[in-house]
């Protein structure tokens, strides 16, 4: 608490009062110039980032919040600061932050704005929202499964990276070659070819050669 007093002496009285009126949330405070002025122990444990290393830095360089879909939320001129400057209320929102360990984590943030001559001070109250997002994602997955709609086209992330050798083996399989014929074509032993086929099936999440070929075609891995 003594430390807190030291760190908050330069803040406007109203902001200090909000810090003292503790909630269970993590609190961090952004000044009118986007500088982090205060970062409490709850924020430290939620993000893994220590107060000493973040105070004085620009919030958007530290929090690195992003929206659903990966677009950046925390930027210079963010909507939160704009609304605060226009003296309009800011609704709470969910963003995904990057913790010290590099893990992405959903948090929910509410903002309290304290106006001053220099501009608004933003008191961020932040809480973990990872579990609720996981639940939502699970529910969304179940809805997708139960609906008759076709699955969306695979995104780049869903396409496995195959080695050039695996791609060659895949091509030969699609032409109807047996393991023996593939071995002759590529100057490999049948055991090596079987290993390549096995790893190919694993990479494509297939249980048979036919299924692997069907999946490869779906993913555009089979060239004409």
């Amino acid at each position: 608490m003594g430390d807190d007093k030291e760190r908050t002496t330069n803040l406007p009285q109203a902001v200090r009062s909000l810090i003292e009126a503790r909630t269970g949330d993590a609190i961090f405070i952004i000044g009118p110039d986007y500088q982090i002025l205060y970062w409490d122990s709850e924020a430290e444990s939620l993000t893994g980032l220590m107060s000493e290393e973040v105070v004085g830095k620009r919030c958007y360089e530290v929090v690195l919040g992003e929206r659903e879909g990966g677009n950046p939320f925390c930027t210079y001129g963010c909507s939160v600061m704009h609304l605060a400057q226009a003296e309009r209320p800011v609704s709470s929102y969910d963003i995904r932050i990057i913790t010290r360990s590099g893990e992405k984590r959903w948090v929910n943030v509410s903002n309290l704005t304290v106006n001053s001559e220099e501009g608004p001070y933003l008191v961020h109250l932040m809480r973990d929202a990872q579990r609720s997002h996981e639940t939502l994602e699970l529910a969304w997955g179940l809805i997708q499964l139960s609906s008759k709609k076709e699955a969306p086209a695979p995104s780049r992330r869903d396409i496995p990276t195959l080695t050039p050798r695996q791609l060659e083996v895949l091509r030969l399989l699609s032409e109807g070659s047996s393991a023996k014929e593939i071995g002759q074509e590529l100057y490999l032993s049948q055991a090596t070819v079987r290993n390549h086929i096995r790893s190919l099936l694993q990479a494509l999440g297939a249980h048979s050669q036919l299924e692997a070929l069907a999946k490869a075609r779906e993913l555009g891995l089979l060239t004409e």
């Binding site: 699609s174 297939a206 249980h207 048979s208 036919l210 299924e211 069907a214 075609r217 779906e218 089979l222």
Partner: peptide
């Protein structure tokens, strides 16, 4: 045959 099989997209 290969073309038809791949287009069929069956595991077996």
């Amino acid at each position: 045959i290969c073309e038809a099989l791949i287009e069929l997209g069956a595991a077996a």
